[in-house]
Every structure is written in structure tokens, then in C-alpha cells.
């Protein structure tokens, strides 16, 4: 994919500067002028996900979605951070979540980037797994992007078994399942 595919052609008269004079330089005859440059800014870092997320990521390698429940509120956090952000207390009870959820929120992505981004436009959603208190992120596929709706029931599509890894990329995307939508009100407060 070229930059022009992603960003389109620069409009005429985009720049306010006056026309430049290149007449004295033969090397510019007939060459295409550079109008933009790619200047990626990056940092690399050593990421240690911690105990709770290590459990979660190792679960994904076995096609398990693991969360943790707060003993005080009963809220189930996934991915777990090892503590409840609402109470500031450890979440010690492990919970295995079902492979079913509802679209809690979504947007249509027109400029995709990242190593595994689907072709644009695609639908990117927050999925509230049944029994969870917070949503997980994932792309929605196997349905036209403009037919995705809040409350739609979905399930994860996993990579092939020999590709499973302790990574959220073990879930390729989410797809609709043949169940009636849940009311949007039931998703409130769970994004």
C-alpha cells in the first residue's frame, strides 16, 4: 500500500508559501518533487506484564480467557491487572470467562495501521464478555462493517492451534453469533 492509497493526493494550494524558483538547477528538470516524508517516531522497551497479565496471556495460549474477580464488589476484570482499580485491593479469585460477548461500543476504522490491522474500512469494537465487568478490544470480521451494532452477540475467532501464543493476537478477530442482541442499557458502565 502506498502513502497515496492511505492519505490521498495532496490538494492543490495546500501550502501558503510562494512558488519557488528552481530554474537555475538543471538536475530538477522533469523530476517528481518530494511533497511529504515519512518520519516515524518510535521507542522500544522491555515489557513485563506482571503476574496477573502473565496468567491471562498464558491462558490465551490455551484458548482460555482468564479474568479476576474483586471480592468486595464482585466485578470481574479482564484482562486482569491483579487489583481492582475501583477499590485498590487485590483481585485474588481467578475466573475463566465464556467465549461469548456483546459489542459494547465500536467505531469504523478508515486509516488502519499496525502489524495485524485488517483491510480498511473495518470495524473495531469493545466486547463485553458474558460475566465480565469491563470490555476487551478486538476487530469485528465476517460481517460488513456497516452492519455492526451495539448489543450484537459475538465470539472470538482463534488462530490455528499451532499458532497459539501467550499474546492477545491469539484471537484473530470477533464474529457474530446467531443470538438475539442484548439491550444497549445492559452494557452501560461496562466499556
Amino acid at each position: 500500500m502506498t502513502d497515496t492509497d492511505i492519505y490521498g493526493v495532496l490538494p492543490e494550494a495546500l501550502w501558503s508559501q510562494p512558488e519557488i524558483d528552481l530554474s537555475g538547477i538543471a538536475e530538477f528538470d522533469g523530476v517528481e518533487a518530494i511533497q511529504r516524508v515519512r518520519l516515524p517516531a518510535s521507542i522500544t522497551y522491555d515489557y513485563i506484564p506482571g503476574l496477573a497479565q502473565t496468567r491471562f496471556l498464558r491462558g490465551l495460549a490455551q484458548k482460555k480467557i482468564l479474568g479476576e474477580r474483586s471480592a468486595q464488589s464482585g466485578d470481574v476484570y479482564v484482562p486482569p491487572r491483579g487489583m481492582s482499580p475501583a477499590e485498590g485491593l487485590p483481585t485474588s479469585e481467578q475466573v475463566e470467562l465464556p467465549h461469548k460477548g456483546s459489542v459494547a461500543s465500536f467505531c469504523v476504522v478508515h486509516i488502519g495501521f499496525g502489524t495485524n490491522a485488517p483491510p480498511t474500512p473495518f470495524c473495531s469494537a469493545l466486547v463485553l464478555l458474558d460475566g465480565a465487568s469491563v470490555s476487551v478490544y478486538g476487530p469485528i470480521q465476517e460481517i460488513p462493517y456497516d452492519q455492526v451494532r451495539i448489543g450484537m452477540r459475538v465470539e472470538p475467532v482463534w488462530v490455528d492451534d499451532d499458532q497459539l501464543a501467550p499474546s492477545f493476537e491469539s484471537i484473530k478477530w470477533w464474529r457474530p453469533i446467531d443470538e438475539p442482541d442484548v439491550p444497549a442499557e445492559s452494557l452501560k458502565g461496562h466499556m
Binding site: Q17, V31, Y47
Partner: peptide, 30 residues
């Protein structure tokens, strides 16, 4: 057995140059 990974975060800036800097870069290519 704690997981650990080298990760990179990258912002793919694509900046327009304007005519003057664009000419400087065009010249470098040539």
C-alpha cells in the same frame, strides 16, 4: 516464569514538506 517481551511503540508520522524543504529533499534524491 514471568512473561517478558521487547515491544516497540511507533507513531507513523507522514509530514508534508512544503515547497522549500521538499526541493531540498528532492535534490538529495537527485
Amino acid at each position: 516464569d514471568l512473561l517478558r517481551a521487547d515491544l516497540a511503540i511507533e507513531y507513523p508520522f507522514n509530514r508534508t514538506t512544503g515547497p522549500v524543504i521538499g526541493a531540498f529533499f528532492t535534490g538529495l534524491r537527485e
